[in-house]
Amino acid sequence: MDRLVQHTPAISVADLPAKDGRESLRLEYQWLNAGRTDAPVIVFLHEGLGSIAMWKDWPQKVCEQLGFRGLVYSRPGYGGSTPREADVKWPVDFMHRQAYDVLPALLDAIGIDDAERARMWVIGHSDGGSIALLYAAAFPDALGGVIAIAPHVFVEDVSVKAIAEATVLYMQGDLRDKLSRYHTDVDSAFYGWNDIWLNPEFRQWDITGVLSSIQCPLLAIQGHDDEYGTMAQIDAIASHIPHAQLTKLSACGHSPHRQCPAMLDAAIVAFVKSI
């Protein structure tokens, strides 16, 4: 495929007006391979502590291998997007709200029309993978495909344990300093994610009931050494979505795009090209 001259794409800001009880938001976003106007779009949905900057160059590499355009953005509370106010706690259905409201509003704001959405792909990691699944279930006739990397479809003890351990690292170790490189308001990012996952009410969160609505091609990927989840997550996806394909990565933890990118990229490229 033809390769474009590499450069760092500019980060833009989209203003989302207040709607149905949601406050107005400003979301930072970035186009990758913007010049490929005839190519399908891949939307990248980051993990629970992620942002545009935290993806680094992995989305660009995926887009290059597939010849696609890419869209990356920081969800509210992360990166340079509208921060979470200190006294605001994410609700139990916070991922549903991102899938059903915020992502569609962003697509509207930046002019991705119905025709483009019908062949759009969504790649999500961790919480972003869960949001990708919820979006695909809500819009079953308007998506080219989904790739969910280390997604959560219900809450496991191992997830809660790892997040509790992250609290200690954030308060007593160097995790806060590391994350501050990627978020304008680092406490907004960390405690928004940390507080809801450790909320006892969140233990009942479970999205398996909506998975059967997903009609588009779906690849679910999990590392055998994932400290935040087990193979039960993607096995549950397969049990509810007969056409789902699974990739289980050996010697890989929760972040395959950082820990085993070659295996991850190969699985993604093979899957997308098979469709």
Rank of each mutant, 00 (worst) to 15 (best):
R3M: 13
Q6P: 06
I11N: 13
K19L: 13
S24F: 05
S24G: 10
L25K: 10
L25Q: 12
R26S: 14
L27R: 09
E28Q: 13
E28Y: 01
Y29D: 03
N33F: 13
P40T: 08
V43L: 09
F44V: 02
L49S: 02
W55Y: 10
W58Q: 08
P59E: 07
P59G: 08
R69S: 04
R69M: 08
G70D: 10
G70A: 09
Y73I: 04
G79S: 10
R84W: 12
R84S: 11
R84E: 07
E85C: 04
R97H: 00
V102I: 15
L103C: 08
L106V: 05
L107P: 10
I110P: 05
G111D: 07
I112M: 02
I123N: 07
I123F: 13
G124R: 11
H125E: 05
H125S: 09
H125A: 07
D127E: 10
G128I: 07
G129I: 00
A137N: 06
F139V: 04
A142G: 13
A142D: 13
A142F: 00
L143S: 01
G144W: 09
G145T: 05
G145A: 01
I147N: 00
H152D: 06
F154P: 10
F154S: 13
V155E: 01
D157L: 10
S159Q: 12
A164Y: 03
E165C: 11
E165I: 07
Y170T: 04
D174L: 04
D177I: 07
K178W: 02
Y182W: 09
Y182N: 03
D185C: 11
S188M: 05
W193S: 10
N194H: 15
D195F: 03
I196T: 11
E201D: 15
R203D: 06
W205N: 08
D206T: 09
D206V: 11
I207T: 14
S212T: 08
L219Y: 04
I221S: 00
G223R: 06
G223Y: 05
G229E: 00
A232D: 15
A232T: 12
I237S: 03
A238F: 03
S239N: 14
I241Q: 03
H243L: 06
L246P: 05
C252A: 08
S255N: 14
H257V: 01
Q259R: 02
A262D: 15
A262S: 14
M263E: 15
L264P: 06
S274R: 14
